[in-house]
């Protein structure tokens, strides 16, 4: 897509707005919602590496989220290792596990890969529910460290510290996506998504590149897993290894538009406030209603616009360009006549 004149100023304005946000909006609920929107944007972008660019739809990404959360939390509670180091360790663990899952399951095509990832996700949930060393089904509470220092990865007086950490993660994920789109790996992943057999004929080791995409995807997901653990200060198999997380990651990317940079961010910006508000306003009376809304959304997107919100935007731009071209030719024709 070509950049139009207003795109760069608009992007700069958005970045400034995001940086200024915690000072413009000081209510805790708004700040918390914004942190969640950004967190889910990063998760959507992470899912997008594999599900969007490489076209391998996964419903098991909670595995990497959970591994990130558990690795840093376990290292901190047992050995006092900084969550920042734990975050890196969690990413490494997630990458290794992604290779172990990916290598056999990438032999499966299409829907069978998606099914295999659901199964793998459930296996991890069951293992962690029964693994006493890491708290079993009860999970782990993270001891509170006062002082709100960046090095501790905990903030109690205000949420602003968390806000800027997750915003930095969004920046990193967005830049990685931007670089990927312009790099050989990005082209190869798209080729694999479009036609794996054609990709092979062009010298692409399909399984290897899918594994690269999954490793990248797993690493980012695990990093956000650590963030989540530090943000909530409590993790359990039912919260971090939940199928819900896997589905919401996919949904954020699919709603916004897979295989694009802006898609997952737009998806999160639409879906997360909706989920939060329905939870707050209807939670007491109609628990789980936001899940019904998700179901409807999936149906609507898959029937009417598999390309997501980004595709609607692109179509609008194409029409707009065509309309302007028409105006120019009309004007030229009128000029000739006159």
């Amino acid at each position: 897509m070509r950049t139009s004149r207003w795109q760069i100023p608009a992007l700069l304005a958005l970045i400034l707005f995001l940086i200024a946000f915690p000072y413009l909006f000081t209510q805790p609920f708004l700040q918390r919602t914004m942190i969640l929107i950004i967190m889910w944007s990063v998760l959507g972008l992470a899912w997008n590496f594999l599900g969007g660019y490489a076209g391998q739809v996964s419903f098991g990404h909670a595995i990497f989220f959970g591994l990130g959360a558990y690795t840093s939390t376990y290292l901190f509670t047992e050995y006092g290792i900084s969550p920042w180091l734990g975050m890196i360790a969690g990413a490494v663990v997630a990458v290794i596990v992604s290779a172990i899952i990916g290598w056999p399951s990438f032999r499966l095509a299409g829907h069978y890969f998606a099914i295999a990832t659901i199964a793998a996700g459930e296996i991890f949930a069951i293992i962690f529910r029964n693994w006493k060393t890491v708290g079993g089904a009860v999970g782990i509470y993270i001891p509170i460290v006062r002082g709100d220092k960046l090095i501790d990865f905990q903030f109690h007086d205000s949420k602003i510290g968390y806000y800027y950490i997750i915003l930095a993660m969004l920046g990193l994920a967005a830049l990685t996506t931007y670089a990927l789109e312009r790099n050989r790996i990005g082209y190869y992943l798209k080729a694999i998504r479009e036609d794996p057999d054609a990709a092979r004929s062009l010298g692409i080791n399909v399984t290897l590149y899918k594994m690269y995409a999954m490793a990248l995807s797993a690493a980012f997901t695990a990093i956000v897993g650590t963030f989540y653990a530090q943000f909530v200060l409590y993790i359990s198999p039912n919260t971090v290894f939940a199928l819900n997380i896997s589905i919401q990651m996919a949904l954020v990317a699919i709603l916004g538009g897979t295989g694009t940079l802006a898609g997952p961010i737009i998806g999160a910006a639409v879906l997360i406030p909706m989920a939060e508000y329905t939870r707050v306003y209807l939670g007491g009376r109609a628990g789980g209603l936001h899940l019904v809304v998700y179901g409807l959304l999936i149906m609507i997107i898959s029937v009417y616009q598999p390309g997501g919100l980004m595709a609607i935007y692109k179509q609008w731009r194409q029409k707009e360009t065509a309309r302007k071209m028409q105006q120019v030719t009309d004007a030229a024709a009128a000029g000739k006549e006159g």
Binding site: K190, A191, E194, D197, A198, R200, S201, G203, I204, N205
Partner: peptide, 24 residues
């Protein structure tokens, strides 16, 4: 040898039923 290795060694092919990368 796998198709990608064959291609790397210097053999290319086209397909009977075209397989262009449609959305690219």
């Amino acid at each position: 040898w796998s198709p990608d290795r064959v291609c790397k060694t210097g053999i290319a092919r086209t397909f009977q039923i075209v397989r262009v990368l449609k959305e690219m």
